[in-house]
Design a protein around this nucleic acid. Sequence first.
DNA 1: TCGAGATGGTTGCTTTGGTAACTGTCGATT
DNA 2: AATCGACAGTTACCAAAGCAACCATCTCGA
Lengths: 144, 144
Amino acid sequence: MSKLALELFLPYRLNRLSSAVSQQFRAVYGPHHDLTVPEWRVLATLAQFGTMTAKAIGKHSSMHKTKVSRAVRALEERRWLVRRESEQDRREESLSLTASGLHAYREIVPRALAFEAGILAALGPHAEPLLEALALMEERFPVD
Amino acid sequence: MSKLALELFLPYRLNRLSSAVSQQFRAVYGPHHDLTVPEWRVLATLAQFGTMTAKAIGKHSSMHKTKVSRAVRALEERRWLVRRESEQDRREESLSLTASGLHAYREIVPRALAFEAGILAALGPHAEPLLEALALMEERFPVD
DNA sequence: TCGAGATGGTTGCTTTGGTAACTGTCGATT
DNA sequence: AATCGACAGTTACCAAAGCAACCATCTCGA
């Protein structure tokens, strides 16, 4: 009879680790700005690409359109982003960060990178192989 | 100015991958038995250890006690597990799988292992390094 | 032995996420 | 120009998850 040890089972381990990392990561932007993960993703995506539609944000950050819609509204209420109706296509809207949004972003990024660097440093020589394996798995489990 | 590419950012990648893997994994037990992830974890833990308390299940499977409580009730209603009041300590209850529960478990396990094996096989020589890196990160991000 | 704090487990409240239905707009075909 | 299907985004509804309050029981110390 085949046996399965939950603590060694890959999907479980990934899930556990991902939650733990996310939770720790919240401490990075938590103290100053209280962001949810979807809000952080929208912020990061907009900062990365400048101006884009909600649809494009969702695609790049693997988020369902309702999640994006809500995160966008939250950031808008915080005055971190503005909507502008697109001229060519009035169904969509061009989203971009305000000065405050960009300011907050720039404050968070170095800490986010330091957080990531801390993990990779702790992995030492295992870091590079991990990243390669991650890339392979991402290929096997593509976005939707 | 430091730049951050979300798609290369480790916490994001872990999160994305973990969701994708979990979602695919549901297809393993989905067709026959419609289980939630917490239910699956309780089932697996009980099968692994025989008889234990809800507290112990939560600890082993990294789940909040309310999650465990609800998953236990769901499995109980499905007649996959039974509660027995502990004699030494009447606050806690001894949980164990019924024959049906064990039967379902035994049907799922080979497929679960095959699913995992498929991933590891696709990783080829990268599998072992990945598992080592995972272990290191788990150490760095312990349960709660 | 009795009272205070700790503990196992459940329940209620609130937040969060997903699905589906809806609104408004576009593009294409007629 | 009118209509039909596709599409961007929002909203309403429902399932899932966390937090805190709660109940019952245990343990320990005065």
